[in-house]
């Protein structure tokens, strides 16, 4: 494997995977801390009709209408979940199960009907992402990294991911204390004039947008691993709020690199004709990372004790 090969074939997928996992890990931290992890599952499935509609309209894979469609779908999903919970008097999980599976199915049918599945956006892509196809043929050597013409030829999926990452970081910093309050004690927030609803809505919108951006990297189901794996790993390693986010970002980068390396780089280095599916391997690495962090966690003993005490 030469350097040019790496630049052309592996650099962009790896960057895309890192950006996807870091962005999702940052946003997923708030889901994890509010014990709402399965909402990530729900949204990542439910955005599919929005993605299909966006694709239908523009015919391209990484466009703003698609992000808009996904956000609209997420809004519909969240509203429907609330409605079903209230009317059928069900726990959140069941309501989510109904809404996201229904919307996912609808999205699949839209893909098939629109003929998108024969062009660019097929069902495989929904399931596994298209990490391997994010290539950068314009790269001719290290100099391309500074060559505007070559950089302009980077896949638009990568740009969407980078934009999403920047938006996420800015939003987290801007709403730092509001998000913390809404996550820890929303009722208190309401009383002191910090209504948690707009902040929560913002978080859901960001997650929906991140799901679309990350969709191309890891597919719609493995996005969940990117959303919840990194924060779960970080949660085992720290008791600090800021550190929880930093470690989640780090863990996201680590599982992306490890997953991509094990799936693609190492088999290629060993001369194998074909590697493994990188998106799948990243999800596996989330579990491996979690197992490692469990073994290394400095808080394990105290946590166990407390869990036992609260059961008693």
């Amino acid at each position: 494997m030469t350097l040019v090969d790496f630049l052309q074939l592996d650099l962009v997928p790896m960057l895309a995977a890192i950006l996807a996992c870091v962005t999702c890990g940052l946003l997923g931290t708030l889901l994890l801390l509010t014990r709402n992890s399965m909402m990530g599952d729900a949204i990542s499935h439910a955005v599919l009709p929005g993605i299909a509609a966006g694709f239908w309209i523009t015919g391209t894979r990484a466009s703003l209408p698609m992000v808009g469609g996904a956000i609209a779908a997420a809004v519909v999903a969240v509203a429907l979940i609330g409605l079903v919970r209230r009317l059928a008097r069900l726990e959140a999980g069941a309501a989510m199960g109904v809404v996201f599976s229904g919307m996912f199915a609808l999205g699949l049918l839209m893909l098939v009907w629109s003929g998108a599945d024969r062009v660019d956006l097929d069902v495989e892509c929904v399931l596994y992402g298209i990490l391997e196809t994010l290539i950068w043929p314009a790269a001719t050597g290290p100099a391309s990294l500074f060559d505007p013409a070559a950089l302009a030829a980077l896949p638009s999926e990568l740009l969407l991911l980078a934009g999403m990452f920047a938006v996420t970081v800015v939003a987290l910093l801007l709403f730092w204390k509001e998000l913390r309050l809404a996550a820890f004690d929303p009722a208190f927030g309401t009383v002191i004039g910090f209504d948690p609803r707009p902040v929560r809505a913002l978080l859901m919108l960001l997650i929906a947008a991140a799901c679309v951006a990350a969709f191309w990297a890891v597919g719609s189901i493995l996005v969940i691993a990117a959303l919840i794996g990194p924060p779960a790993i970080a949660r085992l390693l720290t008791e600090r709020y800021a550190a929880q986010f930093l470690l989640a970002a780090l863990a996201g980068g680590a599982i992306a690199v490890a997953g991509y390396a094990v799936a693609a780089l190492i088999p290629a280095a060993l001369g194998a004709a074909q590697g493994f599916n990188a998106a799948g391997m990243i999800a596996v690495m989330a579990a491996v990372g979690f197992a490692l962090a469990t073994a290394l966690s400095p808080f394990r003993a105290s946590r166990r004790r407390r869990a036992a005490a609260s059961r008693a």
Binding site: R180, D185, I192, G193, F194, R235, Y241
Partner: peptide, 16 residues
């Protein structure tokens, strides 16, 4: 279990 210190929580009283 939320990752926050006692001071973090009390500081919420100063948010307004």
């Amino acid at each position: 279990d939320f990752p926050a210190t006692a001071l973090d929580v009390v500081a919420m009283g100063r948010y307004p």
